Amino acid sequence: MKKIILFTLLLGLSISPVLSQQIKDVTHNFIKHYENRDFEKMFSLFSTDAEFQDPTTVVFGMSGDPMKGRDQIKEYFTKNMGDDFVKVKIDIIRESYVGNLAILNLNFKSDIKAKYFGSNKEGLISIDIPMTTILKFNSDNEIVSHIDYADYTKYMKQVNDQK
């Protein structure tokens, strides 16, 4: 019996790094496509029934409730981060992979057209905020859940200081 338990534990340990590496690879591709705003490629990494939530958007008067379905999430990102986001840079400060989760502490930087914020001013507004992203994966290494927590208070201060 001890041999079976030991074998099972060793087998689990030998498989985990492979699964973690696959999840890490998908996570890094997600970040790359996010930076490029290549939503076709970004959302090809999601399952069709994926969920997205950013509870911190209540700062903007949004509900922060989860969205369901890859197409709805893609539409949200395309609408909210389309052509007005001229440049996006996401630095991974710390990343952890536990089971089927990727937990990322990020620094989100972007140059956004001033008109996006209702400004009559030409030019760009630069933001630089901390963000935490949690991605959950299914057994096919597809993203089934994406949750963001961002410092939108800092975001709005930076926007208002540059308007």
Score class of each variant (00 low, 15 high):
M156T: 11
H28W: 10
E142C: 03
F7P: 02
L45N: 03
G64P: 07
E75F: 10
P17K: 07
F30W: 11
K87D: 14
G12A: 13
Y152H: 09
K87C: 03
D91P: 01
L13K: 07
D91L: 06
V18F: 14
Q162G: 03
I15N: 03
I90W: 00
G123N: 06
G61W: 04
I15Q: 05
K136I: 08
Q21Y: 15
T153E: 11
N141C: 06
I15G: 02
I92Q: 04
T8E: 09
K113V: 00
I125P: 02
S139L: 12
S126A: 11
I15C: 06
G123F: 04
H28Y: 13
L9W: 11
Q158T: 08
M131L: 12
I112T: 01
I23A: 00
D49Y: 08
Y116L: 04
N160R: 11
G61S: 05
V58S: 08
K68M: 08
F60S: 03
N141V: 15
M131C: 12
K113D: 07
S96I: 09
F30H: 14
T8R: 11
I147Y: 02
N80M: 10
T8K: 11
Y149S: 09
L45S: 07
I134T: 13
H33C: 10
I143Q: 03
H33P: 01
V144T: 15
D49W: 04
I15L: 15
E122T: 08
K41A: 15
G64D: 04
K89L: 08
I92E: 13
I15T: 11
N107H: 03
V86M: 05
D148R: 03
F7W: 12
N138R: 08
A102W: 07
M42K: 11
Q162W: 05
K24Q: 15
V159W: 02
Y76Q: 07
I90S: 01
M67F: 10
Y116W: 09
D148T: 08
K3P: 08
I23K: 14
I23F: 12
L6V: 15
I147C: 08
T57I: 12
I31A: 02
T153V: 13
K163T: 02
K136D: 07
I23V: 02
K121H: 05
E142R: 11
L104C: 01
F117M: 02
Q158L: 00
F117C: 04
T133Q: 14
A114Y: 01
V88G: 07
K136W: 08
